[in-house]
Design a protein around this nucleic acid. Structure first.
Lengths: 141, 141
DNA sequence: AATTAAAATAAGAATCATTCTTGACTGTGG
DNA sequence: CCACAGTCAAGAATGATTCTTATTTTAATT
């Protein structure tokens, strides 16, 4: 994290920059929305939420912000089939479980010490740079 | 065009029905396309291929066929981010590795005996009905 | 073989998430 | 203060997929 030097009413104590990305008012609100709710919202969800703070923001800007944050490794995209992309501020390696009864999405972490090669038959020489693990099902009560 | 009950040149020895789904000429060709090439084609890819055999087939019909085959558990959809859906006739539990250098998609099987619960921290009571595992990376030569 | 109802298909329109384009705006450094 | 680069808003464009409708095919029955 980077300390902030100036102080503006919109900014409270948000860093002016994260991972080399300048945090504009729009990007801050988008990021704050993800951090505060942690419900894996879609761009549309974020748009509706952020409009309360920045009424003039456009959906395209929300997409731009989410894209910028993703490119700079600040958040991650989550995909469920071809549904709208969802966004996730949890940067730890993890998968997602979609509870089909409630519609809720839960982060699923790997047990400590688990390595891909222990679990999968990968072609020799494979270098994996990105994993996406998606589960669907229900939670028995 | 030609309806032939006993024997038609289009039909060779294809079963008339799989998993309760009537195998029409279109569905047969779509399925055959997947089985013969095994390259995880998109609907568009299948459409172009199948047009050689059935020139009048429409893209919507290809989508319908792929949907019907999927619903009846004959093939599976494969998703990479929000790219076009791809289709896979391999019904065994497996994931997919996307080689970013060649663009090829490889099936990745789980090592024998591996169970989800051994690898993941799942919320208690979780019943997983569907897994999608997607890897991206490269293969060192 | 003809009749009929249900299922499947072709063609193109419609939908919807996302991306692109354009012109205006903002902030920073000189 | 000015110029420049980076952002933004608004709406158009794109592209995959789905929907609609009329037509054709199939299977069952006569």
């Amino acid at each position: 994290m980077v300390s902030d030097h100036t102080h503006s009413p919109d900014n409270d104590d948000f860093p002016q920059e994260i991972n080399g990305l300048r945090m504009t008012r729009q990007r801050k609100e988008v990021y704050r929305c993800l951090m505060e709710h942690r419900v894996h919202p879609t761009a549309q969800d974020v748009f509706l939420e952020v409009k309360d703070k920045l009424p003039q923001i456009s959906l395209a800007t929300v997409y731009n912000c989410l894209e910028a944050l993703t490119q700079h490794g600040i958040i991650r995209q989550v995909h469920f089939d071809r549904e709208s992309c969802r966004y996730c501020p949890n940067l730890l390696d993890h998968g997602h479980f979609h509870d089909q009864a409630t519609g809720k999405i839960h982060d699923v972490t790997f047990k400590p010490g688990v390595k891909l090669e222990d679990v999968l038959d990968l072609p020799p020489g494979t270098v994996v740079s990105n994993i996406e693990l998606t589960l669907r099902g229900t939670i028995a009560s």
